[in-house]
Amino acid sequence: MDSKPPNGCQRSQNASLGPVAHTDTVLLADIDKKDKTYRITTRKQLKNLQGSILALGLLHPPMLIEYSSGYRIVCGFRRISACRQLGWTSITARIHSADANRFEIAQLAIADNALQRPLNLVETSRALNLLVETSPDQQQLSKALVLLGLPTSSSVASKIQQICRLPQPIQNGILSDTINLSIALELGKLDEGDATALVRLFNQLKVGLNKQRELLLLLSEIAKREDIPIQQLIAEKPLQHILQNKDLDRAVQRQKVRSHLRYRRYPTLSKAEAAYQKHVQRLKLGKYIQLVAPRDFEGTTYAMTLHFKNRKDLSHLKEKIQSILDHPALGEILKR
């Protein structure tokens, strides 16, 4: 193990195609910890990797590129972190000279990840941005995208490119499969605090795409109308009361949050709907009759559906309809 750098290290030339590299032993202290120029992976977990390095050593040397005062990592961010945590002071690495072609180096960084496993959206975003920034022309960029299995459609690529520039909580939401690309891009248009609060809400409620869209729309429209930040709206007592109620299961919590926000967004309509439901309940329609109000009470025509199997059933329903006609609740419904 390379616990100390050997003096007079041996250098061997890279024989493969691509930018020329040599193998050398370098001090970990000489490798820039902060530079993320070529970082593609979003994985941070090191435990398994440390175990493997301890047992078998560093099987694949990381790839570095020289720069003015040391080295930048091209491939092997996790391996180098693991070695640092294991207390190593030096490692064997493949090193590219400072004047190496950046576009070729970028492709190596991406290939090291993309050709071994599927990239997640954030990694794909990082890869696309890196290639776009370094490619000399569109033709070479297109070739590289195909070679590395990255999206070639410009409209898709331009959307994905935005991902790695979004605030970290949104990226985390994508990585944890809480939110998808389209919601992430919508959240990206919001203030960072609002986006963070929404990701937390989606995460807590575990809502699917359609419900996320609905909640986002309700919250953002209430916030715009009332000139308050979305995070303030989420922090309001009634909503927090639902979110912090441990006795509610998640499905009930979701339903209550949605109802609360819908009421907040459409108070008059919600009251009318509630009043309508109350009157319908008073009619005691049973399971064989359904009464449907005009959508949003805009039209004036109500629909009634009857379910029956035979003349006897229908005859019973006839009596029921007569009792509905005589019931004052029907008058309340039609009076509006």
């Binding site: 459409y266 008059t268 309509l269 009318a272 959508r295 949003d296 009470f297 805009e298 039209g299 509006r336």
Partner: peptide, 13 residues
Amino acid sequence: IKGSDGKMRYFKP
């Protein structure tokens, strides 16, 4: 709400 003509209009009341 969405009116019968597909346009958005205030809730009738």
